[in-house]
Design a protein around this nucleic acid. Structure first.
Lengths: 224, 224
DNA sequence: ACAAAAGTGTTGAGAGTACACCCATGC
DNA sequence: GCATGGGTGTACTCTCAACACTTTTGT
């Protein structure tokens, strides 16, 4: 039987790049790596790498994420695919960008094989980046804000048990504005997505009620 | 200077697949093609094809769209990239899926070189599809509904000048429920996204006011 | 005059927003 | 007892949802 030959077309290279967000020092930060090799040697870039021929896109993203941060089982979402023919000077490289949200307490940054260092940068002061990574980062910030407004992804930046004030702080950082405490609590509680987990005693003020996120939350809820 | 060799990794093939939506016979329809060659010979599939080595992803999607429908300048949006290693029996093929919205009045379907026929199918009764195209289609329907709720993309299914009842009908078809005419009009008008274009005279009942969509609409607005 | 779709307002319920004080704990 | 964040209620506004009749045209 006749069969189409998939090898008659020249093939592009395919990479994944990951925008890894965390909250650290009351700021939304992004992980960037300094490239050790050309092109863009010594320039900053998003962590990423080539997709192996036998691994899925998500598996590639998870592998890179683990190589860079040591973490597994964090929030990971495909962002967008970027494929302008000239985006990489080495040749045709299509990249599938991902967003990851990690709790910075769990992270041990370690340099991967093709980078000399990985460091957190404030999302408000992004230095010049290699390739089209500025465009990817800009888009990821838009998507992140959108996701924060309409879903519960923000909770993946927190430990499993948390106080409501911790969530509020994250929203204030990401949206760069203050929310009224009474209204915020009212809204979050009314969504019925939290489970009480008892009272945290290790604080030098009135101890807050801790909550965890219920398991069976639907995908899209209006948070803000 | 040392330079990373992008060719040391085996390269996957990369395709684009397009979910082309239209409204026709008071129904949301999707364009499917019957495959002429293996694998999945004679099975239905989404229109698509290989990305050329020197064209962008969007250019590839536009090219395929034009090959299948003859239309250009329609709403086109990247949906998601699918890259499970075994999704194509011929080898490793990553596909970037797109959504297109076309006004069916403008369409002349024509069979492209690798398909024997392209036909509209009701989005409610999708036959078995080749590859993982069912998954792609399911996801595209989710995205479509979301986009209809929060953006003005639905207007790209209409001619440039339209009556409000035409928009309402589209929303009723896509969400499969009736909306109250008074509330619908009130909502759309209050969004301040329409421009009056005079009255349509060629109808055998009270002629409706025609509108066009204002040019400078922001991206996300709550419609429903 | 009849058929067909266009156009149009009011009311009640619920959600969002603005706003300030007392409480529990560690030191 | 003081510093620190935790916890809580009310009133107003605005948006959403429910609901039916008259108007304009072609035939």
């Amino acid at each position: 039987m006749e069969e189409e030959n998939i090898h008659k077309f020249k093939k592009p290279s395919v990479t994944v790049d990951i925008v890894i967000f965390t909250i650290k020092d009351d700021d939304l930060k992004v992980l960037l790596v300094k490239r050790k090799i050309n092109p863009f040697k010594n320039k900053l870039a998003l962590p990423g790498g080539f997709v192996r021929i036998d691994e899925s896109l998500e598996a590639a993203a998870k592998r890179e994420l683990k190589e860079e941060t040591g973490v597994q089982n964090v929030y990971l979402e495909q962002l967008f695919s970027f494929g302008e023919p000239k985006r990489d000077p080495r040749g045709r490289v299509i990249t599938i960008a991902y967003i990851a949200l990690v709790n910075s307490e769990n992270i041990k940054l370690k340099a991967a094989t093709d980078v000399s260092a990985a460091l957190w940068f404030s999302s408000k002061k992004i230095p010049p980046l290699a390739f089209d990574h500025k465009k990817i980062l800009d888009y990821s910030l838009k998507r992140l804000k959108w996701k924060f407004e309409y879903t519960t992804v923000a909770f993946s930046l927190l430990p499993q048990k948390f106080a409501i004030s911790q969530i509020q702080k994250i929203y204030e950082i990401v949206f760069n504005k203050k929310f009224d405490k009474r209204n915020f609590v009212k809204k979050i509680i009314s969504l019925n997505i939290l489970k009480e987990e008892g009272i945290n005693k290790n604080v030098s003020h009135r101890p807050p009620m801790l909550y965890s996120l219920k398991k069976d939350i639907g995908e899209i809820i209006e948070i803000i």
